[in-house]
Amino acid sequence: MKCFELQGPSGVEGLKLVDRPIPKPGPGQVLVRIKAATLNYRDLLTIKGGYGSRQKFPLIPVSDGAGVVETTGPDVRELAPGDRVVGSFFETWIGGEPSAAKLHGALGAAVDGVLAEYRVFPSQALVRTPDHLTDVEAAALPCAALTAWSAVLKLGGVRAGQTVLTQGSGGVSIFALQFAKMCGARVIATSSSDAKLERLKCLGADATINYRTAPDWGKKARELTGQGVDLVVEVGGVGSLNESIRATRVGGTIAFIGVLAGPPPAELRLPLMVMQQQRLQGVTVGSVEDLQAMCDAIALNGMKPVIDKTFPFSHVAEAFQHMASGAQFGKVAIAVG
C-alpha cells in the first residue's frame, strides 16, 4: 500500500510517499480502506515534532480519516466488508471519564495515523458513517467535530436560548457554530476577515466581530449580550484568553482548546475569572461513545461539515501548506482512495 511516512520532525519536506505491506486484521480488528483524510492544526505541530518524546518515527501522520471496511478479524461481528466507517481519535478511550491510559496512543502522533491507503483499527474504535455524508465529509468528524461537540454539548452543556462565542473559521470553530445552532443557541462569531464573517453569518451566526479592527472584542461581545456570553469556544489559547474572560458572563464557561493566538499577554485577567466564578474547561476531543452520540445527532439533523478544499493524495504537501497559510474556511481534506 502507498502511505506517507515522516522519518523525523522535519516538517512538510520530510513527508515521503513509501510502500508498506497491507496489514492484516487480527482478533477484534478491522482492515479499513481509507478513502479520505482531513487536517487539523495538531497535524502541523506533529510533523514538526511538536509532541516531543510521545512521538515515534517513522510515523504515518494525520489522525482523522474515513473509509470502507475491507476485511475483518475472525471474531468481529458488528462490522462487515463494505461498511462505511469513521475511526476514533483515541482508540482506547471507549467511554467514561478520561484517564492517562485512555488518552495514550492518539492517532498520528504516538501511533500511526491515516495518511495511508489502508489501516487496521480495533473494531470497537470504529463508528458507522452517517448515510448522508460523503467520505470526505465524514473524515472531518474524529477530531475537529468531536472537540466542538464536547466543548458545546458534553462539557459546555449549552441549551436553547444561551449564547456561544466562537473564534475564527477553522474546523473546530465552524463545527461549534453548527452544534450551537443545532441546540437553539445564539452565536457570536469572530474573525479577522470581513469576508469570512459574512460566510459565518450564512452558516447561522447571529452576530459577528472583526477582532482585528476591534481588539477589545471581549468587551464588544459583552455589550452585545448585556451580561456576557454563556460559553466561549477558546481555540486561540492563552494569547486570546483575556478577551475571552471579558466576554464571558458571571458563572459562564470558557472551553479551552487551542494554541493558535501565540504567547500570553504580560498580565492575564485570572483574578477577574475568579471574581466572576467562571469555569475554565479543558477539552481533549472525546471517546468512541461520544463520537457515536455526535454521529447520531448529525444524522438526525442532516448536518453537513464545511469542507474548504480537497487535495489529491499525491498533493499532501500542498494540503499542509494551504492549511498553514490560514486561508481556509472549514476543513482541508485529502482524497486518499
Rank of each mutant, 00 (worst) to 15 (best):
D75Q: 08
M294F: 00
T163Y: 05
Q55I: 05
Q178R: 08
I174E: 09
A144K: 03
E97W: 00
D230G: 03
T190D: 07
V259L: 15
V172G: 10
V332K: 00
P9K: 11
D112K: 08
V250M: 11
I188Y: 12
G239F: 06
T92Y: 15
Q328N: 15
P81W: 04
T134H: 12
W149G: 08
E5D: 08
D135Q: 09
A327H: 10
A125Y: 14
A139W: 00
S244R: 03
T163I: 05
G204T: 00
T163N: 10
D230F: 03
A145M: 03
Q167V: 02
V32Y: 04
G50S: 04
F175S: 02
S191N: 08
V238N: 06
L153C: 07
P81M: 15
V30Y: 12
T163R: 02
A116M: 08
T92E: 08
M303G: 00
I22N: 01
C183I: 09
A297G: 02
E117V: 08
E97N: 14
M182C: 06
I174M: 13
A138W: 02
A148N: 02
P27T: 10
A327D: 15
M1C: 07
R20Q: 11
N301Y: 07
P215A: 06
D64S: 04
G50T: 03
G161T: 07
A266Y: 03
G168K: 04
A214Y: 11
G184T: 10
F89C: 03
L231W: 01
E137I: 00
T147F: 04
G170D: 10
A176H: 05
L103H: 06
V76P: 15
G26R: 14
V274G: 01
V233N: 08
V250D: 06
R159L: 06
R84H: 13
E117G: 10
H104W: 09
K24L: 06
L268G: 13
A144Y: 00
V172H: 14
G330N: 12
L79Q: 03
V158P: 01
K309D: 04
V76T: 10
P58G: 01
C143R: 00
A319V: 13
L200P: 00
I307K: 02
N242L: 04
P264C: 00
